[in-house]
Every structure is written in C-alpha cells, then in structure tokens.
Amino acid sequence: MAFTITIPGIIRLVVVRTPDEVLAVNDASMVERSLSGRGGLVNRSVAAKLAVFRTPDGDIWPAFRDRLDPLRVAHQAALEAALSDVRPLLRRIAPEIAELGGYVRDGAADRSLGVIVQQAVGRLFFANYTASEKSYYAARTLQTWLSPWPLRAFWIRRSGALQASLDRIMDLSRGDMACAHATALAMDNIVRSIKLMRRLARHGDNLAKIEPLDALAQTLRAPTRVVREARDERHVGPVRLRARSLVLLAVESARRQRPDPGFALFASAWNRCPAHGVVPALLADVWQAARADTGGSPEQRRDLQTDQIPVSKNPPTAAIR
C-alpha cells in the first residue's frame, strides 16, 4: 500500500512498497528518473543531490538517464553484452573472490571488505583497476551524500569531500560512467550481500550445509529505495501520483514480500541491470570459495557455471535501476 505525504511548499512524496505497485510505477511512462526539484523544498533538495552525478561537460551517470534516452539503451545493451561472458570475467577477479571467500569464512581479510568488493567490481570493467582505502572512502562519501541526512550532506559538500570523491571515482573509472556508478554506488549492495553471507556462515555448519545457490538467494539484496518523479498526475493502479511528486520505490521492502531474485533486480523491467549475469555468479563463487576448506564435495568445489544460476532470466544487481 502506497502512502503519500503532501505539505505544500515543503514536500510532495509518494512511497510505494508492494511488489505489484513498485513494478507498475516503475513502468509508468510519466514517472521519470530525472528530478525537476519542483514540488517542495525536500523535492528540491533531493534533486540537487542527484544533480551532482553529471560531469562538468554535462554527461549523465547511467542510472540517472531516462528510459527513452537512446544512449541509455545503447549503453545498457553494450554493457550487458560485455558482462555476459561470465566465466572469463570471474577468472579475472579470482583473487578478489578468494579474498572475499576468506572474509565470509573467517570474518577477516587483509583489506577492508569494501575495498575488495570495489576492486572486484572495478576489474569487471578494467583488468588493472586498483581500489584502495581512499577510493572506498570516496565511494562511501558518495553513498552518504545520497543518504537522507541533510547536515551530513551539507558538510560533505561544504568540506569539498563531495567533489574530491567524485573526482577520485571518475579518475579511477577513466571517465567510464557505468564503472563509476558500479564502483561508487552499486557496489554497496554487494557489500551488504557479503556481510549477510558472513552472518550466515557464522551459524553452525551453514557454510558446509548451504549450497551456493541457496546462499545467493538468501543474501542477494536490492537497493533500499529508488527515487523517481511523477511529471504529471496519473493513477497507476490504486496509486495516485500527483504531478511533481517525488516517488520512492521501496525495492528492498517489496522484495521481502516477493522473494524472487528477479523481482529484486527488476528482471523484466526496462531498467534491468546490465550485470545481471555476473553479479549473482560472483556472489555464488564467493560462497563457494568460502566453503573450499570446509569439506564441500568436489562437485560443489568446482566452478559454478553461469547456466546453473537460476536467479532469473535477467537478474540485475542493484547496480543500475
């Protein structure tokens, strides 16, 4: 059931939480990714936050491109193709997968979890991508910037940390916006998933008992919320979207009501993630790597083949929504 908050001049917000409503609103033609900032001070503040994800020459991060944007369509298709050959990509990041497996098994690693994940994700784009504490800090800064705490956001901008983080991420991504998005924002969902794997592994003999695909299903997480704007008024099913409402799709909340990984990843929607094949395989391999020394069967130890992962036909990660 969606709920609406309207305080004239302050906020115009609709929060959508049930799976059917999330899918319907996500698919509605007048619900856009780009935010005008109209509707109230809060709407303006959120729009201003997202506006930083445009480079100085005006280019736009892929997750903020609108549905009909021909570049979004082209980039999505090209990236999907580049990330479709999963096995070679996972071999490329085998050291990071091993490190992550160690973390899941032992709860510790030589580097922080975020750095390892960021490097693994970055190396899906560039084989020699190197993450560091600084680069992960930059990613965390951008994630914090998008969090709903105005004072923190104010300080991040005022101190120059926001711009510095954007510059660092863009430098490491060599101008590739998809890489920047994946290594700054989307990677957080993988970090959350691996932390859940670690919690899962701590209990009893779960690590030996739970198969990788089951572990994947239990730990794959969707983004908490996705932001949209309704340009014009419309009813989408039972949800009334007033013009210029900020629309929050509570994806993770909806996913819990429908534990289909495909749903969590907008599998059948226009905004499916191009990395829908590689990320579930990566997570399954991490679990498998964690099990490597705990007596899993030889069959279980072998590399998972992509076609074994029944996540969905098009199961994206939280990378691009």
């Binding site: 020459d57 005006g58 280019d59 491109r65 549905r67 944007d69 021909p70 570049l71 979004r72």
Partner: peptide
C-alpha cells in the same frame, strides 16, 4: 551526432 548530455 548527439551530445551525451542531451538525454532523451
């Protein structure tokens, strides 16, 4: 050729 910032 379209500039990247033109969007949709």
């Amino acid at each position: 050729p379209r500039e990247t910032w033109l969007g949709a």
